[in-house]
Each structure stands twice: as structure tokens, then as C-alpha cells.
Design a protein around this nucleic acid. Structure first.
Lengths: 132, 132, 132, 132
DNA sequence: GTGGTCTAGACCACT
DNA sequence: GTGGTCTAGACCACC
């Protein structure tokens, strides 16, 4: 059973919080391709959020290629993720890495600390890949 | 000479982009305590940005203790940039590292590639710290 | 043997895709008046589609005068497929042609390329009309 | 001055009708890169449609790379359209051409008629390119 | 002024 | 049951 935690007071929009958490579950393997997500109405009730907010999060994730919505059936994790080319993958990755590096330097973190934390987060995700 | 790159199409507000880049220059050592920043009028002209947007960025940075405004003289980098606590640093860093990890996994990048790219970006920044 | 290709992820309803493809077969001559279509149960099994979806498609096509259901015997192609009026044909065609033109221009395709590709697709279809 | 015509009784969603018309104006050159579109509130008032419906149309067009929304400034036609590769352009075009061809055959239109109408629609668009 | 987000609730279409 | 669309109206953030 999935669990989502939303903070309506956060500066991050609720639909964005939901998106991030779904993407995390998908990346960690807790949500595998073909798996069904909570229906819009059910998620709306359980998270105390308006249905249209759930719709927005699910729609954006469909645009991003993470989810697929099937009318009358439900919302599912997409089968294939990221058909990006090699160079595009690196470019996208480098952009995010640069952002992380900038903030790390601003925070005064040294190289070893940054690499250790990134390594830990990667392991936390990949360690879950095999689980059901 | 400082160079700022602003993208008005980004979801990130322009004033926030300016703030981030000033902080980047400060963190990287390109802007040292006591250095003078471009005047509001000059920055407005050169960056093709509304003066009120520059004012907002400088004000927020002053509030954060990064800049100091001296009436009639201009805007300067503060002498003391208040550092964050140890645990706050790690929490902020870990959040950003997790976001990078999630996207890296979805892009199909392996651990070595991610760590290599992050390391490269860190070095690129630290190389700039030595420069004047 | 007829072959149908359905995409449950499409924005176009499954029953509509089925209808279109039956009409395509009829229009191309692969399905001639009097030919029998797959039973609802058989089509449901082979296409991995809910029987009620097949029922809806067949019903709509019967209403449109394309199919005829004979109790206990099956579903057949109607003897007379009611043709549309001249102006209705052109209006419908022009609407679709306009949509194609808009997207072609935005894709940067020139006139010759567009006409050549449309011509090729028309020939591919008309080639099938001659076959049995 | 642009004019949009919406039919709330149509089976085509209102936001889709708006999208189609904006795309038509862009393809015809009536809306050029950098041009500003009616604000959400203004369009809402003039078209007697809820603001969120306009938002949805504009958002989808931003996803499609046709428009750019700038917080606090307005909605504009995007500078560069379709950075698709050669082969992807042809594939996308061929898909739409096939759909047109299928319907043309179903409607009983012959090759000459189809090519003539497509040619006319292309000319109608390209004839407007130079106009202001 | 502008766009961005969210709510409460309605009605329709698909499976 | 499911998702898709639309309304009326609110509050916030950006320029």
C-alpha cells in the first residue's frame, strides 16, 4: 500500500508534491510498469485534496511519460520510460547535477560529503528495485 | 565583469534566478565580501529586466544577509555570510540529492555516471573559486 | 482473416477505433456486403477488449447502416452502405485536410512533401482494395 | 484583432476548439513568434468561457511548444517551433496523412479530389504567411 | 495588471 | 465503477 504525505502550507504546490512522490515510487520500483495508482476519487478522499488537483498531478505525469490514464479503467504506470538518446540523457543529467553542485557550494559542503550523500540516495533507490 | 543569464520562460521567477546566481558568485568566490554589485538601473538595462525585479532580488538577498545596501554608494557583498547549521545543510543537500537520484534512475543512468558528472560539476565550480 | 489494432492508451475511445477500422475494411473492399464479422465473444477474446465495448461498436455501426445483425446467425456487412451527400463529403474532407495542413506547416514540411506523402498513403490503401 | 468561435454544444471539448484555432492562426502567420495572446481573463470574458478552460488550452499549447506563458506578463507565441528531426517529422506527418487517406477512402473521395483539397488548404495557410 | 493554484460541485463519456 | 470536462469563485505570486 502506497502512502503519500502532502503539506498544504508548503511553498511547493500540492500537485507538485504528489508528482514528486509518485516519481520517487516509480524510480524506486515500488510502483512498477503496469501497476495501477489510486483512482482520482479515492486519492482525493484519502489525501483530503480536491479531485482536480489529483487530475492535474496525474496529467502532468502523463505528459512526462511516467503514467498512462485509461478512460473508465484507471491510471497506470507507463510501460516504457524515457526513450531519450544518450547525449540528451547526459545533458539533462548534467543540468541537474550543476544545480546540485551550485547549492552544495553555497551550503559550504565539501566534495566528499556531496558525493557520499548522492551515493546514499542512489543506493536507497536501487536497493529497493528488487522488492515487491 | 559579472555575467548573469536569465530565462524569462522558466517556471522559476526571474528575481529568484538572479538571487541564485548572485549567491553562486558569492559561494564560488568570484564575488568576495565588500565587492560592489551592479546598480539597479544598470542591471535593469543590461539584463532587460524590470527595475522592480532587480530591487526585489537585492532586497531578498539583503534580508538573507548576503548583501548590504549603503545609501548613495551602492550594493555590496556582506562581510559575514551567515552559515547554516550542520543538520540544516545536510537536510537541504539530501533533498536535492534525492531529486537528482530519482531523475537519474528514470533516465537510466548508472551510479558511476551520476557520481562522475556530479564530481565534474563540483570541480568546475571549485576551479572558479581560485580565480579572481 | 481480419486484423484489428487497438490502442487502449489512445485518447480515441476503443469502440471508436474499432468502428473506424471496420469502416476502413468496408471502404477498402476487404469487407464486402454480406461478409460476416467476428462474433462478439470471439472479437472480445482476440482483441482483449470487454464484450460490451464490441457490442457498442457493432451497435453504432448498425445504427449507421454499415452492419446488420441477424439474430442467431451473426453480424454482417450491410448490402447498401448509405453514401453521404456531395457537400457533406467535401466539408468533412476539408476539415481533416485543414488539420493536416496546420500540423504540416508547424512541422516545417513543404507543399511537395505533404502532397507526396498523402498520395503515397492513398495509393497504399487503394492497392488493398484490389486484393481479396 | 483575432477572432475565436466556440461551440459549447460540440462533441469537441471547448479547450480543444480553442487550441485548434490558435494553432491555425500560428500556422497561418496571423500570430507570429513573440506575439501576445489575449490574457486569460480577457479571453474568458469575451468568449463566455470559464478562465480555467482558457488556462487548460493555453497550458496544453505550451506543452506542445506553441505558446509560452510568462508569469505577470502574459501568454506569447513561442519563438522556435518543432525542433524535431527529419525522420520524426516525416513519421508524424505520415501518421496524419494515413488517417486522412483512410477517411477519404471511406468517404468515397478519389485521389484527385483529396490532393486538390489538401493543396488548397496548404495554399490558404501559406498565402497568409507574408501578411501582417 | 498578469498567470498559478486550489476548492466544491456538476454533468458527461468510457469500460 | 472509472476518467474528462466545465463552472464559479477564491487566494497567492510575479512584474
Amino acid at each position: 500500500m502506497l502512502h503519500f504525505q502532502l503539506d498544504p502550507r508548503s511553498a511547493v504546490p500540492v500537485y507538485r508534491q504528489l508528482m514528486d512522490q509518485v516519481q520517487y515510487y516509480v524510480a524506486s520500483g515500488a510502483l512498477k510498469p503496469g501497476h495501477r495508482l489510486p483512482s482520482i476519487r479515492k486519492a482525493s478522499r484519502e489525501l483530503h485534496v480536491n479531485p482536480t488537483t489529483i487530475v492535474k498531478a496525474y496529467s502532468e505525469l502523463e505528459h512526462a511519460g511516467v503514467l498512462v490514464r485509461r478512460h473508465g479503467k484507471g491510471v497506470f504506470v507507463a510501460e516504457q520510460v524515457s526513450p531519450l538518446g544518450e547525449s540528451e540523457t547526459r545533458t539533462a543529467l548534467r543540468e541537474r547535477a550543476r544545480s546540485l553542485a551550485v547549492h552544495a557550494v553555497q551550503l559550504g559542503a565539501d566534495r566528499e560529503l556531496v558525493l557520499r550523500i548522492v551515493g546514499e540516495e542512489l543506493e536507497a533507490l536501487q536497493g529497493k528495485q528488487g522488492e515487491e
